[in-house]
Amino acid sequence: MNIPGDLKYTEGHEWVRVEGNVAYVGISDHAQHELGDIVYVELPEIDTEIDAKEEATNIESVKAAAPVYSPVSGKIVEVNEDLEDSSELINSDAYGSYIFAVEMSDKSELDSLMDADAYKEFLEKE
């Protein structure tokens, strides 16, 4: 299972890449594998204020639908429009395909997320 060391992870299988004050969010390789062929990614609206652990959006495969929660609080500032027409990018490159980006209002929230080792351990237990 592919778990890059430079990212943070949640128990809901989101990953976070931090660039300055902005957190880029996607779903882990494990999550895309569990879902199967991803057929649709709903993109959240830019400028939406969102709280940590609040549902930001949804992704769908043929037989499943999964919510994507924002790992951090803040304002949604970017969405990955490539996914609108090519949702399969998440299957082929889960970590190269962020879904949305949040301008963080409280960076300390990152501290409660898992690093790669912790996430690996979490997956083994699950």
Binding site: V62, K63, A64, A65
Partner: peptide, 12 residues
Amino acid sequence: LQAREQHIKRQR
């Protein structure tokens, strides 16, 4: 488009 529906999403 069944992923919207109750038999998949249940309470969601």
